[in-house]
């Protein structure tokens, strides 16, 4: 009696487990397939793209990547270079300034630094769309419109708050004694910071840099109004492709892969530290 009810329960459990597998597999398919399809499109021969009888089996080709990196009309080199310049410069500046600010806050702990972090967080919560109109007017009046600087400056300003907030958590985690030991051994305050504290905060700084990089690299909200021709980065470029007659899907797919690849790579590389960074900032803010 007990035995038979045990087996039915086990059988029911197994059935439940099979269902769970089926559902999980379906969910993974839904999550991953669209991305996979994009990557496939980027290496699909042109005559097979957007056909009424799509196929998964074809000889992959790099023709679209050759086209977008070539010198022809469909080259994206200008926009790619713009994206790289704007992203790198703004990330380096934002992280440098944020390291200084965060170290200061973590060490000196000025009065009201708790409120300060709250303010920082609140300002990061505000949508960048709120900056579009004033920045557009400022940029066109000052002649900065359609220059790299028009994007670099707002990206720095937007990134500094969150970067500072995350970094101060990392710095607070580092024992003060290490720095004091270095100073006893003859390091000045500045040397102690650069030679001891900065290397120790390395993972944190890497994670924060990725955050800043991703924001600037992906941004379309500011890049769309603040650039016209010369300084156009990849996201606004992609939004213009649609208005032309007959989108070249292979090239669009390849461009999108170029935009996606560094973000996914970097995010996966520092994933661990991003989570710990956010929680560290939260716990000790």
């Amino acid at each position: 009696m007990t035995h038979s009810s045990d087996t039915t329960r086990r059988r029911r459990l197994n059935v439940g487990r099979i269902w769970a597998f089926v559902v999980l597999a379906a969910l993974i398919f839904i999550a991953v397939f669209p991305i996979l399809w994009l990557v496939l499109t980027s290496v699909m021969p042109s005559n097979l793209i957007m056909r009424s009888d799509p196929t998964l089996f074809f000889t992959p080709t790099l023709e679209h990547f050759r086209e977008i990196f070539g010198s022809g009309r469909e080259a994206i080199t200008t926009y790619l270079v713009n994206s790289i310049i704007v992203t790198l410069v703004s990330t380096i500046c934002a992280v440098f300034l944020a390291v200084l600010a965060a170290y200061g806050i973590a060490r000196i702990r000025p009065r009201g630094h708790a409120q300060l972090s709250l303010l920082i967080l609140t300002s990061r919560m505000l949508p960048p769309v709120g900056l579009v109109v004033p920045l557009y007017l400022i940029a066109s009046q000052s002649g900065l419109l359609d220059t790299h600087l028009a994007l670099i400056l707002p990206y720095i300003a937007i990134n500094i708050p969150l970067a500072t907030w995350m970094l101060q958590g990392f710095f607070m985690d580092l024992p003060k004694e290490l720095e004091e030991a270095a100073m006893i051994d003859g390091c000045g305050q500045v040397a102690a910071f650069f030679r001891v504290m900065l290397p120790l905060a390395g993972p944190g700084i890497a994670a924060v840099s990725v955050f800043c990089f991703v924001l600037a690299w992906n941004d379309m909200v500011l890049a769309l109004p603040l650039t016209l021709r010369e300084a156009v980065t990849l996201p606004p470029f992609m939004s213009q492709v649609r208005q032309e007659e007959g989108v070249a899907w292979g090239q669009l797919g390849a461009t999108t892969v170029v935009v996606m690849a560094p973000v996914v790579t970097f995010t996966l590389a520092v994933q661990r530290w991003i989570v710990s960074g956010l929680t560290a900032g939260a716990a000790k803010g």
Partner: peptide
């Protein structure tokens, strides 16, 4: 889907 940016999502679904 969370790791890719909005512009990439836009193009994926355009396809």
């Amino acid at each position: 889907p969370m790791m890719i940016s909005e512009v990439v999502v836009g193009n994926i679904w355009r396809l």
